[in-house]
């Protein structure tokens, strides 16, 4: 039985269905990212779905809120769903990605404030 079957076959079904319903309301590019993320964080055998719920809830929240804001999924995650997932799960590369995002943040701010001509 795959992880996702275990998950959806459990008492978490209702919660899970609510997630999927929320995902379906997202724009297409966001939905594609969501599908990718689900696969990527698809976990180790001893991992229970319950632990994943708050994480996925947070991810969906991010996608919903930024979609509502009119940003593209590219704006939010970069081209970098792998990196996003690594940071999400705290894998070995997580630190590298965080450093990269940190630089990105300051670079974007400098660039966009520069464009304001202030």
């Amino acid at each position: 039985m795959s992880f996702w079957e275990t998950l959806t076959g459990s008492d978490l079904t209702r919660e899970w269905k609510a997630f999927e319903a929320r995902a379906e309301a997202l724009p297409a590019d966001y939905r594609a990212a969501w599908e990718q993320i689900k696969v990527k964080v698809s976990p180790h055998s001893d991992f229970t779905g319950r632990n994943l719920m708050p994480i996925l809830d947070g991810v969906l929240g991010l996608l919903e809120e930024t979609a509502a804001d009119g940003q593209s999924v590219q704006d939010v995650l970069g081209d970098d769903v792998d990196g996003f997932c690594a940071a999400l799960t705290g894998g070995e590369e997580a630190r590298d990605y965080r450093d990269r995002w940190r630089e990105q943040l300051n670079r974007n701010v400098a660039k966009k404030l520069g464009q304001l001509g202030g």
Partner: peptide, 21 residues
Amino acid sequence: PPDYQIVYKEIQKYLFKVGPI
């Protein structure tokens, strides 16, 4: 104001990715 909006949005994006619970 525009400068605040820019900085806020970038911070938000960053925090969402970093993912404090």
